[in-house]
Design a protein around this nucleic acid. Structure first.
Lengths: 412, 412
DNA sequence: GCTATTTGTTCAGCGATTGAATTATTTGCC
DNA sequence: GGCAAATAATTCAATCGCTGAACAAATAGC
């Protein structure tokens, strides 16, 4: 029912090739087995002649390579399969979180080719110092990537907070950051990436958004819509609509943690009352389970909770059930509003999913008008920790696939 | 921050012209004064030669016409202004609601060229009979449109209920409809519209969605995002994201009436508890204001309420304040989630906006994390009643502007 | 009446797609 | 083993639509 969206600007003669390059490359990326030129022709509707010309460009630019002939049946000249190049452009993913720094490199195919995590409590560290450590890790990642024939063409940084269009971190409460000009701070270090037209050198984005992108890319491509909830100290959500991340007017969507679930309930640090975070945030669950918050390091709350629940501890089970119910109330509202068919529990929630899913589903069944006609799936995230870093790197790689012309112009 | 979306399919030689036709026509539609060919060239980035060729096609197809030379200053050959044709394709909008049938015709420029409303209680009327009456009204509208040189190229029907992709009305509770196959029922009547490639003869959609589209088209074009809330017996919302209506995975988005605002509160007919509808629906407000529901005809509830509030009736004022607070809690959640900057109160809420807006804004200010940085506007709808019918007709007209190639192919 | 200025059109050139013909390579059958 | 059928990929003249520059049209100002 959606109108076809035309490219924003003028469609010039050369745009034609640009668009078809993206179309063919996207098909190769989306295919579950290496397609032949003939497969691509039938899939895209282009003629075989055009596909051949386009593929030639892609091969020359080292974005795809020919694979061994796939096993076939029947007569005829065997096809040559096309796969995304293992060597070529790659994305750099960076993540600053409360208790770790993460760096990773993802190639065109979405494979994580490098990953480094540095565990440390970042709250007492000044933003500039934290970023300096990250740059150091990124330098090693760049060298490692180069050894594998990968060229970093862009970086994306995940931050647990609100980021504006210019990359300014307005507020990252749990990190203690406020108005941190990340691009300016990173510009002081020598550049690690090779600039490519059409690919921003650095984007800064909310951790929940990028984790949702990671989840999106870990699935078979398509216009899927889901809600990815990152349950950390705060609760953030990434909203994927029709295969694209929805960022909101100013890029501040997904603040699901402050959905009111008990409007006259506990006061929240946001100034409101009865926000979801007060009932399903990590601290709320931990304290409801009777665990003294102070005796636990920053990140072990969920691990300990999962242990206790596994062992059948009644307090932990009750705390998780109550949190799941609160979460379910919020999620039911979101599903009623956006008509999503899938909810993914990520971040700290992933490990707690066995206990959170049932009450969440119960609330959805009770409250969602359309649940009777079409069920809603609630499942844990497939990515582990540092999902945001992987999503960040993947978003850069995806950009090359969506706009290969820039890279091809570079490698001339 | 959003990736450029390429057209879904293959980009063939002819697509180039199709896309540029849409680009130029869209610019003409979006301009606030008749642009010249030269204006269009600079605005779109195309050369003047190309724009001339494209405009020639549009003129030949009677989608635009040349207007009197606009008053200009300075030297040079005077420009010839281009405006959307007053004669040519138009959209037919249909609406079945609880207490009226409405039909209207909207031209390319978005002007309502014909409007008929037939007030009657539709609840006891069989769906087939209601649609038959609507077709009769539409026939008169078609004849009237033809007298003005307008050709109906598509119809859209607004229904207060859930509609699936095939146009089947799954459930329209307040109308008493269930599983009504609207396209099949309408197919029994002689066709009123002239089929045009790329424009569906009939689409059926939720009333709240189409009202939101009407609101969108009544504004200067652009990537606006807002929430349009239709407060009738039920409460529905149309969600416009980036200038496009968001329909959800199955087209059932916008069920804001069943957002939980008091999770352990009053039971709702949806099976849930404490839904917004139980606190801010028309029946809830009317009964909270002490008005016996039975003594009022279906549609006069809000009018009577506005009268009483205007006169300072304390019960009515209290009822509206409480409803506004409940509405504000739900809206605050939505704004936190989607980062919208505008909320439009439509339907029955439009008349009550003076009393609803303050408490809604108060809840937003208290609960929305980012409200401090960028304010959220809450305003009544600019369209009157039957906004859904106007939005329905406008959605057809917009389709011609977004995809003019189909119409041009027809008129050969 | 002349010049500067802006609008709109004409036209050769060119890039990209197309469709048919051609070449390449394998399977299956006699 | 040889040949026909089948499928894959390339080659090439034709065509479509955009580009850029030159040119014609129409007006204001001096």
């Amino acid at each position: 029912m959606s109108l076809t969206h035309a490219p924003a600007g003028a469609v010039r003669q050369g745009s034609l090739r640009e668009l078809n390059l993206a179309l063919v490359l996207g098909r190769i990326a989306a295919a579950d087995r290496p397609p032949s030129r003939a497969d691509l022709a039938t899939a895209t509707g282009l003629t075989r002649a055009t596909v051949s010309a386009v593929v030639e460009d892609l091969l020359a630019g080292r974005l795809v390579s020919e694979s061994d002939p796939a096993p076939r049946s029947g007569a005829g000249r065997p096809a040559r399969g096309l796969v995304l190049a293992e060597q070529g452009p790659a994305g750099l993913g960076l993540e600053v979180n409360v208790d770790y720094l993460a760096v990773c490199v993802v190639d065109l195919a979405g494979q994580v080719r490098h990953r480094t995590v540095h565990r440390a409590d970042l709250r007492p560290v000044a933003p500039a110092d934290a970023l300096a450590r990250l740059v150091e890790m990124a330098g090693a990642a760049r060298d490692d990537a180069a050894r594998h024939g990968l060229t970093l063409v862009g970086a994306a940084l995940a931050v647990p907070g609100l980021v504006d269009d210019a990359g300014l971190v307005r507020l990252a409460p749990n990190l203690g950051w406020r108005d941190v000009p990340v691009p300016a701070l990173l510009a002081e270090h020598p550049p690690l990436i090779e600039q490519v037209p059409g690919v921003p050198a650095l984007t800064v984005d909310n951790e929940a958004n990028l984790a949702a992108l990671g989840e999106l890319h870990s699935q078979p491509p398509g216009p899927s819509s889901f809600l990815h909830i990152s349950g950390e100290v705060g609760i953030g959500a990434g909203i994927v609509l029709g295969g694209a991340l929805f960022r909101g007017v100013r890029g501040w969507s997904g603040e699901i943690g402050h959905l009111p679930v008990h409007p006259e309930g506990r006061p929240c640090r946001c100034g409101g009352q009865g926000c979801l975070e007060q009932y399903a945030g990590q601290e709320a669950i931990v304290s409801a389970a009777g665990l003294a918050r102070s005796e636990l390091p920053a990140d072990t709350g969920t691990a300990r909770l999962a242990e206790l629940a596994e062992a059948g501890d009644p307090d932990a089970l009750r705390a998780l059930r109550d949190a799941g119910t609160a979460l379910g109330v919020a999620v039911a509202g979101v599903v009623n509003l956006l008509d999503l068919d899938t909810v993914v529990l990520g971040g700290g929630y992933a490990a707690l999913a066995p206990w959170l899913c049932p009450p969440v589903l119960a609330e959805i069944d009770a409250r969602v008008l359309t649940a009777a006609w079409s069920p809603v799936t609630v499942r844990p995230s497939t990515l582990g920790a540092e999902a945001a870093a992987v999503g960040a790197a993947g978003s850069v790689a995806r950009r090359i696939i969506a706009q290969p012309a820039g890279w091809l112009a570079r490698s001339g």
